[in-house]
């Protein structure tokens, strides 16, 4: 049981919750296991429900704990997986560059995220399996265009070779970190930083800021 108890870890400055979404078989679970454990499993089983991993990353001197929820891709499982979007500050929307249909579903997934997650969630479009370049069915330009249109960050990765995997996670975490820092600056108080330093989940959402503002007008 050593592996389980070794996970007790040092302090962190921020806790960010991310979700991995996208069609079944695009490689979400392997992206996560490469990032969290440097593992790749060719015969990785289909995720039923959710899986979970976490990792600490340092950004601009702040230790960030990324809690990542990996969700089942099959449509029927959305009934239970969309509960995990709540409280997520970032989403990696993954498709398979060698499988057109997984890219065609990106818009449907976006709709799903926007319905169930906080409105300010940072979404990043991830074209996985870039090692299969000879089987490519979705061009980089096309994906970039979609990302631009929808206001998403975009990257191509290969969970197999690990190319782009760390960049993917650090880019989305940096973006969230930037937004959170800006929010703190806007608010201009140190309380917020103190609160999250205690390990509270950060929600990139104006509601929270409003609730904390002294002039919050809920009673009028």
């Amino acid at each position: 049981m050593a592996a389980a108890s070794s996970s007790v870890d040092d302090a962190y400055d921020y806790l960010f919750k991310l979700v991995l979404i996208g069609d079944s078989g695009v490689g979400k679970t392997n992206l996560l296991s490469q990032f969290a454990r440097s593992e790749f499993n060719l015969a990785s089983k289909a995720t039923i429900g959710v899986e979970f991993a976490w990792k600490n990353v340092t950004i601009e001197g702040d230790v960030i704990k990324a809690q990542i929820w990996d969700t089942a891709g099959q449509e029927r499982y959305r009934a239970i997986t969309n509960a995990y979007y709540r409280g997520a500050v970032g989403a990696l929307l993954v498709y398979d560059i060698a499988k057109r249909v997984t890219f065609d579903h990106v818009e449907a997934w976006l709709k799903e995220v926007r319905e169930h997650a906080d409105s300010k969630i940072v979404v990043m479009l991830v074209g996985n399996k870039s090692d299969l370049s000879q089987l490519r069915q979705v061009s980089t330009d096309e994906a970039q265009e979609l990302a631009k249109r929808e206001g998403l960050a975009f990257i191509e990765t290969s969970a197999l070779t690990k190319s782009g995997v760390d960049t993917t996670f650090s880019r989305i975490l940096e973006e969230i970190h930037r937004i959170v820092k800006e929010q703190e600056l806007d608010r201009g108080d140190d309380d917020a930083a103190a609160v999250v330093a205690d390990g509270e989940a950060v929600v990139v959402d104006d509601d929270k800021a409003d609730a904390k503002a002294p002039s919050g007008g809920c009673c009028k």
């Binding site: 079944s24 078989g25 790749f40 499993n41 060719l42 015969a43 089983k45 289909a46 249909v101």
Partner: peptide, 28 residues
């Protein structure tokens, strides 16, 4: 979009069902 989706999911899963596959894990 929705037409072939479960068929391809099924095909994919065959290749990753214990009993049908030689598991391969690459780890560092």
């Amino acid at each position: 979009p929705s037409g072939g989706s479960w068929v391809s999911t099924l095909e994919q899963d065959l290749l990753r069902t214990p009993g049908c596959v030689e598991g391969t894990v690459f780890g560092q």
